[in-house]
Write a protein that binds this DNA or RNA. Sequence first.
DNA 1: AGGTAATTGTTATATTATTACATCAGAACT
DNA 2: AGTTCTGATGTAATAATATAACAATTACCT
Lengths: 162, 162
Amino acid sequence: MTSQTELNHYSSEHNHNQCVSLALSTAQSLCNERGVLLTTIRYQVLTLIWESHKAVKAYELLDRLRPLQAAAKPATIYRALDFLIEQGLIHRVESLNAFVGCRCSDQQHEQLLLICKLCEQVDERPAPEVMSALLDESKQAGFMIHSKAIEIHGICIHCRTK
Amino acid sequence: MTSQTELNHYSSEHNHNQCVSLALSTAQSLCNERGVLLTTIRYQVLTLIWESHKAVKAYELLDRLRPLQAAAKPATIYRALDFLIEQGLIHRVESLNAFVGCRCSDQQHEQLLLICKLCEQVDERPAPEVMSALLDESKQAGFMIHSKAIEIHGICIHCRTK
DNA sequence: AGGTAATTGTTATATTATTACATCAGAACT
DNA sequence: AGTTCTGATGTAATAATATAACAATTACCT
Ligand SMILES: [Zn+2]
Ligand SMILES: [Zn+2]
Ligand SMILES: [Zn+2]
Ligand SMILES: [Zn+2]
């Protein structure tokens, strides 16, 4: 039996409320373990990001945060984003200047991102074969990896078949 | 015997003048074949990008173009960059908002980019195993690929060993 | 030469992100 | 309780990146 939160978010059976709960509680646990503060603002921004599986822009987040934090300014958002990225709770989508919740923040964080041009949803995949091929290639090049951005743009299965 | 332009640009034997000549003449040929114009401005911008193997920012290019084109404005640069990207003559490095010459514009254009944090040089590699793993993974996900950005940040072999 | 499409000039503005410094809140110590 | 330190937030200004809109010019085709 598969838990609903493990289902791909394209699936009609995907229970997003459960998906968000899991993300938020995982975030809270990780921050506790690490002795860092998931403050109100940070939690609110993380919640806003998790409203969907779409990548969200910083200034869009700012607009959506303002009803909750009247004083919110660009720095408010960027600080929260910096924190969430540092803690591996969200991904920055480099090719969109946007941000998306990470569904595997307790495991390997860097993933392959499949970004749909139609629905704008981002599917993150561990893609072990890709990662190991990247390691091999880097090793051959004598290159020491610090971080990876592997972003594929195209059309997701849901948008193709509907 | 290996031609000098085929040598990795980290090598001390790398002849960059030759490297640039090849890039510019390839660009010219490709544009001829395709019936598109490599205008003066576009050629100048391409030449500026090829001054090194580092990724260059748009506004830095603008500053360097102005001595040659007094009227140059942001749109001037961004139009030239758009053209060069469309023609596969340069790469946009998404994770840096910067641009780098493409050394394989006559072949497969999308490549793995190894980006050094120290010398800022970008090494592009066809990385066939990585590409085929990406294809497999996308196929499994039912995802139709339009474009790829595969960008690895770290320390290059030259910076590690010097 | 005249008509057309592509390119460039020009101005303004939108979007994304950072810096610097002041203030505040909580923990740790005296 | 007061003092000090640290991390977080408030606030204002500005930097850096990118696009839109429309006019003028140039290249190209008949
Ligand atoms: Zn979900
Ligand atoms: Zn889609
Ligand atoms: Zn070179
Ligand atoms: Zn280097």
